[in-house]
Design a protein around this nucleic acid. Structure first.
Lengths: 296, 296
DNA sequence: ATGGTCCGATACCAATTTTGGATCAAATGG
DNA sequence: CCATTTGATCCAAAATTGGTATCGGACCAT
């Protein structure tokens, strides 16, 4: 097969229509240029140039090949450029896992910031629960996880990007909706909707801890995994619930969200996690963006 | 800049993820392969492969470059293939000039035959009068002319593809429309529509010769260049005319076309013309098709 | 632990290819 | 008809490429 140097030679000759000038442009002398063209023609099995004694013309095959040759050269350059940009972390793609809850409050800001600062970067977002994210991180199927504790120490790096309180969600017409804050004990007296112990283990455990510390034992009427499902059930008047602050972003009609009165609770945390041996050059760049966002 | 051989090396290694196997696939040994990859990486200024001691992985830049590399290789192959096809006269493009009249009868068949036998060939058709075609042939702006005599001998090759009689065109209701054939003298007695002496010089001269040989002198009521204009005027009842047989293809309503009774006329000829130094490989191929068509 | 094995990198050598100066051959133009 | 232009050819020198032998690190089985 032919080589790119031969393609460059051919393009130069085809553009100059003169071996001498083309050779000068290529910083070489005329004889090797002639030979390279001959070799190219032999490889292709096609005459590309019609050498008249006073003029060089392109044959139709040469004309056709010239078009393709220019394309090939352009493509090689852009391939090299792209590879460099990817290596610098200015282009490429990252797979990001995120929990459903983070899609309300943190993910949109992160995506917006990346879009702005890294316009050529493709973010591939995959919603999944924290446990799956850890598994996929280990398998290298996602580069970044946005997930809830606990995080095993095995080869993972992470930092916290969000810590939010849980706030009470009660039906709009409910008697507790009148106050600006709600006592945890009042809430625990109502029929309580909470998180599924497996799919939403983190929130489930968080609430269990919260109530047991306050020596309360609410009546659980429903287990659900998704915040919007919980809010929908609250809206329907089935009971009350505790949801992360991020739920305010949802603007759920018919549901009043009120902070808790005596707020000693441990915050619900969201972490930015990656494998420390992940060599995606975008990782440090996006981590920096994520950190900035978390600090603000 | 890098070379295609290096790209091929890289693709092989990226696909095998193993230098030894890749080298075998490339019919070479492992050390030079390693070196080529290193050179490629140095040229790009980017690490493409992560060499672990037991496994080779692609870096993100390598992943990106692999995609582009495959594209480049595919493009080079198709470029070579296309050049060969063009040289063989199986692909490419030809500029063809044709007269308005030939577009009724000969051009459609020629185009259809080319489409069928040379599906990848682009025919660029340009309607122009014979004189312009000769000029453009000289300038190399068209490869083929389909035109009327006279043809100068200067560096042109040609053969006849069509010789058609002139037939009478009379309004459908006209008294002459009743007969199956029409005498030239009867026609000459009617108001006569004929060809513009410049734009349609060939037909003009042909008719002048025809009438003068028959010692007739019709009354010309209108000069027109285009056959369909002439037929429209005939249809409107302005007069009668003589048009080439090809006019039958037009299926002009309200116009009766009748052959002449004593048909000693010189036929209207159409020629396939090209510059003998035109090196478009499609030329002999299309000329052969055109000749076949003319013979049939 | 430890020797064996796998795998890519390195060193060095031989063969091929490429390069560029000199020269040639053909054709144009004064 | 000769000077000039232009691509092709020849040849010696230089560079590149590919191969063999070997190294060094990591994993594995014993």
């Amino acid at each position: 097969m032919f080589e790119l140097s031969q393609v460059r030679c051919f393009v130069a000759v085809a553009e100059e229509l003169h071996f001498g000038r083309a050779a000068a442009r290529l910083n070489m002398t005329q004889p090797p240029l002639s030979r390279q063209i001959q070799i190219l023609e032999r490889i292709l099995g096609v005459k590309l140039l019609q050498r008249g004694n006073r003029l060089v013309r392109l044959t139709p095959a040469g004309q056709s090949f010239l078009t393709e040759a220019r394309l090939i050269l352009k493509l090689t350059e852009s391939a090299a450029l792209l590879a460099r940009r990817v290596a610098e972390g200015k282009a490429g793609s990252v797979n990001i896992g995120f929990t459903a809850a983070s899609s309300y409050s943190y993910v949109p800001e992160l995506v917006a910031a990346c879009r702005q600062q890294l316009p050529d970067v493709e973010l591939i977002l995959k919603e999944m629960v924290s446990g799956d994210q850890l598994k996929r991180l280990g398998a290298g199927e996602i580069d970044i996880g946005l997930l809830r504790p606990p995080i095993p120490r095995t080869g993972l790096q992470f930092f916290r990007v969000k810590a939010e309180r849980m706030i009470a969600a009660v039906p709009a017409g409910h008697k507790l909706a009148g106050a600006t804050t709600i006592d945890l004990s009042d809430l625990a007296a109502e029929p309580f909707i909470t998180y599924a112990p497996y799919e939403a283990r983190y929130f489930h455990d968080l609430l269990v801890e919260l109530f047991s510390r306050a020596a309360l034992a609410p009546v659980y009427v429903q287990h659900l995994a998704q915040i919007h499902s919980i809010l929908a059930i609250v809206q329907a008047g089935v009971g009350v619930a505790l949801v992360p602050e991020a739920a305010e972003k949802l603007q759920f009609r018919g549901v009043a969200l009120r902070p808790l009165a005596d707020d000693q609770q441990r915050a619900a945390e969201l972490y930015f996690v990656w494998r420390d041996d992940n060599d995606n050059p975008l990782l440090p760049v996006i981590a920096a963006i994520a950190r900035d966002l978390a600090g603000a």
